[in-house]
Every structure is written in structure tokens, then in C-alpha cells.
């Protein structure tokens, strides 16, 4: 019974359906329960919220990622699914503490100084929430000093930096230097992303990882998390 409902949650993440009124990626799904109704049912059946996340949401998003990479899904399809995960987490997060579940870790996200683009960062933030991380999003055009102060105060395991412009990606290097100067560099793993950024650039500024797209960012964070947990 639990497996059935978790499978349905997974399927509705793939279809990008929040409520029963939503159409799915495929035709003919309107009227059937969406993820929010299914999660309410699952919680009423005392299914562990952590299982709902790992076996429903995260698995569903993993399949969405495969479809995205196979070019069966495009950015809007992926966003529809990410939005479902965001709505699901809004319901689940208050239940997680009660169920004794621990978040995997905290991530601070920011678009660096001088850059006003934040859609990519917002996508990654939702995907990270769906993967079980606590996300604090500082926004866009964020001063290096504000980022460093947030790392000092919040003590996150990860810092995600985004830039969409060649002229602003250099500010990522400033953040790395400021973290060193503040004695915080070894306290946080830094993952960077954004259209002009590359693996080589990440290495050149001493970042711990680079995500080529939303799913790539999740893979990098997960691998750093697993390496740390091992």
C-alpha cells in the first residue's frame, strides 16, 4: 500500500502535477490526485516523510533528470517537476522534525555581486530542497561580504554561487578569497554554476565543484556530501 502511493507520488513528480486539477506531461491525467493530495493521503497513512522524499520525490526527480539529459524533457518540463517538489516540501518540512528526520545539510545559495540573474539559482535551490537539503537563498546581486557573513553565521555545509555574465563570474573568485581571509574556506564546500562558468574555471578559483545544469549541481553536491559522510 505504501509502495503504491510512493510510486504514484513519483509518477506525478515526473508528470509535473501539483494538484488534481493539473494536466500532466501526458494527456488525460486531469482529475486524478496530484502530488499534494497524494502526500496528504500518505501522511494520514503514517508513511514516514523521509520515505516520501527519498522514494517518491527524489526518485521522481532522478527520472526527470534522465529524461532531461535524453532530451525527452526540456527546461519547462523539468521546472514543472521541480515546482511539484517545492510544493511537496512545503507540506513535508513541518513533519520532518517530528519524524526525527535530519536534513542532509544546509546550503547557502547566492548570485554574486553585479549579476541580477536568478532563475538558474532558483531551479537549483528547489532541486536541492527536493534532495533533502535545507536551502537558504540570499538572492541576487549579493555583496561578497554578505555571503561571507552568511557562511559565518549559518555554518552551512555548502555554498552555491551563480553568475550568468562573464563580467561577474570574476566575483566568484573574490568570494573564494574572502572566505580564505575570514578563515572559513575549509568550513564550507563551494559549488559554482552559471552559463559562462566551466569546470576549468571552478578549478582555477579553487571551488570544490561545478554544476553544468540543475541536475549536474545536485550530482556534485551529493557526491561531496557522500564523500564527507564516508
Amino acid at each position: 500500500m505504501a509502495d503504491d502511493i510512493l510510486k504514484l507520488i513519483q509518477e506525478n513528480v515526473i508528470q509535473g502535477r501539483i494538484t488534481k486539477d493539473d494536466e500532466g506531461f501526458d494527456d488525460g491525467m486531469a482529475g486524478q490526485p496530484g502530488v499534494t493530495e497524494l502526500i496528504e493521503t500518505a501522511l494520514a497513512q503514517k508513511i514516514n516523510p523521509q520515505d516520501i522524499i527519498s522514494k517518491g520525490l527524489t526518485r521522481g526527480m532522478a527520472i526527470v533528470g534522465e529524461k532531461f539529459e535524453a532530451k525527452q524533457y526540456f527546461i519547462p518540463d523539468m521546472l514543472a517537476s521541480a515546482q511539484v517538489v517545492g510544493a511537496a516540501m512545503d507540506i513535508l518540512e513541518p513533519h520532518l522534525a517530528g519524524a526525527g528526520a535530519k536534513a542532509k545539510g544546509k546550503i547557502i545559495m547566492a548570485t554574486v555581486k553585479g549579476d541580477l540573474h536568478d532563475i538558474g539559482k532558483n531551479i537549483v535551490s528547489i532541486l536541492l530542497r527536493g534532495a533533502g537539503y535545507t536551502v537558504k537563498d540570499l538572492g541576487n546581486d549579493i555583496d561578497t561580504s554578505t555571503i561571507v557573513e552568511a557562511v559565518r553565521e549559518e555554518k552551512p555545509q555548502f555554498l552555491g554561487l551563480s553568475a550568468l555574465l562573464i563580467s561577474t563570474m570574476a566575483n566568484m573568485a573574490d568570494v573564494m578569497q574572502a572566505l580564505k581571509d575570514a578563515g572559513l574556506r575549509d568550513k564550507v564546500k563551494v559549488v559554482i554554476g552559471g552559463a559562462p562558468v566551466s569546470e576549468e574555471f571552478a578549478k582555477s578559483i579553487g571551488a570544490d565543484g561545478y554544476g553544468a545544469d540543475g541536475f549536474g549541481a545536485i550530482r556534485v553536491v551529493e557526491s561531496l556530501f557522500n564523500a564527507n559522510a564516508a
Binding site: G16, P76, L79, A82, D118, I119, N122
Partner: peptide
Amino acid sequence: ADDGLILESYALD
């Protein structure tokens, strides 16, 4: 985007 409607926000962008 502030309302969490990132798909709609992306489409309009």
C-alpha cells in the same frame, strides 16, 4: 518567482 511559480516565471522571462 517570489510566489514559487518558477515555471511561469521562466516562461515569461
